[in-house]
Amino acid sequence: MYHVYMNYGPDQPVLYDITLRIGKAEFAFVTGPSGAGKTSLLRLIFLAEPCASGQILVAGENVARLPESRRHLVRRKIGVVFQDFKLLPLRTVAENVAVGLEVLGWPRRQVRRRVEEMLRLVDLEHKAHVLPARLSGGEQQRVAIARAMIGDPPILLADEPTGNLDAELSLQIYDLLERINARGATVVVATHDRAWVERTHRRVIALERGRVVTGGLPAA
């Protein structure tokens, strides 16, 4: 990101002059108090919001001025996980995970195989035909991660992925994110869970009132 500004209206600036670089296969935390702009930063990257000015390069493509008709192609390179999971309540676990491949037009047999593989990765193969409402919070978040990663995107963005989970379940989620990163994906996690951030010794990009305070550029 180069000198990126973002606002939610003329009187509501959110991010100021953000310049940061996250490398391929890197694991980085975006931290800061509530209202610092963590979620807005992630929303810029996965094209849910437009920036007012500046450049945003995702997998080598400047997405800041990308036409609407090409945005879905960039989104396919990014998996996104939310605090509230955003699962489809009337679809089973397997169907929720499969959505990520259905939009790509994969044949059903291949989708089934890949879903099984992803459910194994998140240890939920025995819950494939269960509706999300019957799962614990940790299980629901693992389903969301499986859905985000099923197309094998090079980038995973997680917005407060453990915000609704207790310490033990949070541990499972972070362990899963580490494994995904170890497979080669760039993982960016927005969180205010300082305990976990300090324990992992990963790169930390700290935001305060919409500005990068530390960690904008990787350590030399």
């Binding site: 879905h72 989104r75 489809l88 990520g100 790509l104």
Partner: peptide
């Protein structure tokens, strides 16, 4: 609406 948001998130085209 929720389903549409999710579909867009996982890279669905407008046509999809």
């Amino acid at each position: 609406q929720d389903e549409i948001v999710i579909l867009k998130l996982v890279g669905a085209s407008d046509a999809f």
